[in-house]
């Protein structure tokens, strides 16, 4: 069966931005099965909403909006306590993760664990910040004011820096 132009456009953009899906799945899920499940659900919802996408808007912003909404819903409806590892306990989990993903650097894994310990909405905020989205874009995606974004980010970044200094002293 030949692909339509819409399918081709969708797949091309999806392939270009697939990193977004991976990072969101890693931030909202603990187990590999859960991650795969969420990745498929995000792709499905992106394709389902594809007709609503307007080409004049930035694709990655639209993609973040859909993907984060799906991830938060997925997390809330199938929430497992296993997911919410306290920041203090992250080193134990880090050790386990290093065994399964040796190619990942310690810092990245630590950052990932710290993000996972945040509340669902704060996670979304940090992910968007790390993706270098502007405060205006973050505010638009989250549906809050720019001042609110700045205040919250300041607080969370402080917390992350503190955790890094505490747990990885050479940083």
């Amino acid at each position: 069966m030949s692909k339509t132009t819409a399918e081709e456009d969708f797949l091309r953009l999806l392939q270009q931005h697939r990193g977004i899906i991976v990072k969101i799945c890693n931030s909202y899920c603990h187990s590999r099965n859960d991650r795969e499940d969420l990745a498929q659900e995000i792709t499905y919802q992106l394709w389902r909403s594809w007709h609503l996408y307007q080409a004049e808007h930035v694709f990655s912003t639209w993609m973040y909006r859909v993907a984060l909404n799906v991830a938060i819903t997925h997390y809330r409806t199938g929430r497992k306590r296993l997911d919410t590892v306290q920041l203090e306990d992250y080193s134990a989990v880090l050790a386990t993760m290093q065994e399964t993903a040796p190619a990942m650097e310690e810092n990245i894994l630590a950052l990932q664990r710290m993000i996972r310990a945040l509340k669902e909405l704060d996670r979304a905020l940090v992910l968007l910040y790390l993706e270098s989205k502007s405060y205006r874009e973050i505010a638009e995606i989250l549906g809050i004011s720019e001042t609110n974004v700045a205040t919250k980010l300041g607080r969370i970044k402080g917390k992350l820096r503190q955790q890094f200094t505490k747990n990885i002293p050479n940083n």
């Binding site: 990193g19 950052l111 992350l160």
Partner: peptide, 24 residues
């Protein structure tokens, strides 16, 4: 923090951790 995140992007790109083509 943002640099670290960019490094993460590169790692993902290298490891091809998600092969969308397989199920899309």
């Amino acid at each position: 923090l943002q640099e670290m995140w960019k490094a993460y992007d590169h790692k993902l790109e290298e490891s091809r951790i998600l092969n969308l083509q397989s199920w899309a």
